[in-house]
Design a binder for these strands. Structure first.
Length: 460
DNA sequence: TTTTGAGTTGTTCGA
DNA sequence: GTCGAACAACTCAAA
């Protein structure tokens, strides 16, 4: 089928791996040689914090190595770069995994159009999801707005087995031109996970052989390594969720079920963002536009205290400091600090969401923005408005010995046990250097409930 | 079209 | 200390 000597381009984006790569199979069908390409797109690089850039560069180095040092890295606008490279290697087809993000989808349309003008084709094979956004639909054809029925239909829909590919599926050609070197790591203080496909599979194997069966409970304990740590690898496609689902299918534990549900959440939020690209920046439920939020100098000061981990609430401060130290935060603690920003400080959820996206190594637009909206109550299937996390109760329940707090808040390192969650009750007073609580939680909870009344009356 | 059942992650209060 | 109920009403999904 392929003409002798025909080549194709495999344009990598959020699929920095060689196993389970449908694009490789499609490219092998179309041609007998391929060029591996990655485009450093300033539009995407600019809002990425140093942690994500550093991880990305590391993953690119790992991919380049897997391709025998033949990955071409070019900087520029993909709509200009991709057609130029395709022409240089005389490729009829450029192969990608479909992107369903607000920017990615527009970018791909522009690239597709530019390629078509030169008689070339952008071929989409697969996506970063087990089920592509837009596929899971109700009987009447409309998209789901509630998670649980989505998950049921999603599981019924099913997914393909992992594509059997590796670096040798294609013959990689030498780049026709010199690209740019993969940039050096950004200056990041945080300790980052090891980038790349091998690290992803090793991390997954550890989880699968270890805590997965106990995941249902263990995942809520920030003081213990009970989570999979796969988020960053999924974000950059160092592993495909299909691979994880195939391994989970062999497990028959509730822990494995719970983990499968977490993957479903990732797919649900990608689907929602696909339906409603504006929901990355605006309230999914627009009646929440009526929620009164704080602004001005006092709000800015409170926001700074939150970002710095100096709110005087130990579990909140520990989380915010873990974010700076590791460019990652335990999921349970993400909910606690988010609830605190939105319901104790009465600040807009998107302030917090933006801060997360700046620092998180695993920052994914769909999951991050909709996770925040869930906490704020403005999202799909949102938390009932009266559900306000109590940072002390949450700390005592999920960090019962206080080990998590002591690990990240050195001022409190000498306080034993769960007393660490309420340093203001200590006989000797709050340890030097640690702040007083910046708000009275009980008071702010009532204030939050009053503010939500405004949303309710705006609906009428 | 109408009806019915259900909806990630919590807190507080009173018995 | 433990336990169950209240906290509201609405929208969604499916029969």
């Amino acid at each position: 089928m392929a003409d002798q000597g025909q080549s194709a381009v495999v344009w990598f984006r959020r699929d920095l791996r060689v196993s389970d790569q449908p694009t490789f199979l499609a490219a092998a069908d179309a041609a007998d040689r391929a060029l591996g390409l990655f485009v450093l797109d300033p539009v995407l690089l600019k809002p990425s914090g140093g942690a994500r850039l550093t991880f990305l560069y590391g993953a690119l180095r790992a991919l380049d190595e897997a391709l025998g040092g033949r990955l071409l890295v070019v900087r520029g606008d993909p709509a200009e770069v991709v057609p130029r490279i395709a022409k240089a290697v005389d490729a009829q087809t450029v192969h990608v995994a479909a992107d369903f993000g607000p920017y990615g989808a527009r970018r791909d349309e522009a690239v597709e159009k530019a390629l078509a003008e030169a008689g070339r084709e952008l071929v989409r094979s697969g996506s970063p999801y087990a089920v592509a956004p837009g596929r899971v639909r109700k009987d009447d054809g409309d998209p789901f707005k509630v998670f649980t029925p989505f998950r049921r239909r999603w599981a019924d829909h099913g997914w393909r087995a992992p594509a059997e590919t590796d670096a040798d599926t294609l013959t990689w050609i030498d780049p026709p031109q010199k690209g740019v070197p993969i940039p050096a790591d950004e200056k990041v203080d945080a300790e980052l996970p090891e980038p790349g496909e091998k690290a992803a599979l090793r991390t997954w194997r550890e989880f699968l052989d270890g805590v997965v069966d106990d995941y249902g409970d263990a995942r809520d304990r920030p003081d213990r390594p009970g989570t999979s740590r796969m988020s960053v690898y999924l974000k950059y496609g160092c592993v495909h969720p299909r691979t994880l689902l195939a391994d989970l299918a062999a497990k028959r534990s509730t822990g494995a079920d719970t983990y499968r549900t977490e993957i479903a959440w990732r797919e649900f939020y990608a689907d929602i963002l696909h339906q409603r690209p504006d929901s990355a920046r605006k309230n999914y439920d627009r009646s929440f536009d009526a929620l009164p939020v704080e602004s001005g100098k006092a709000a800015d000061a409170a926001f700074e205290a939150w970002k710095d981990g100096r709110t005087g609430f130990p579990i909140v401060d520990a989380g915010m400091r873990q974010l700076r130290a590791e460019a990652w935060m335990h999921n349970r603690v993400r909910m606690i600090v988010a609830s605190f920003l939105v319901k104790d400080l009465h600040l807009p959820w998107w302030w917090g969401a933006r801060h997360f996206m700046t620092l998180l190594v695993d920052g994914d637009l769909a999951s991050n923005q909709h996770g925040w909206q869930w906490t704020a109550g403005s999202g799909t299937d949102a938390s009932p408005y009266f559900r306000v996390f109590n940072p002390i109760t949450q700390g005592e329940r999920f960090d019962p010995d206080g080990a998590y707090v002591r690990r990240y808040v050195p001022e409190l390192a000498d306080i034993p046990g769960k007393a660490v969650h309420q340093p203001w009750t200590l006989r000797d007073g709050i340890p030097e250097g640690y702040p007083e609580p910046i708000v009275d939680h009980k008071q702010e909870r009532l204030d939050a409930l009053a503010r939500y009344e405004k949303v309710k009356s705006a609906r009428r």
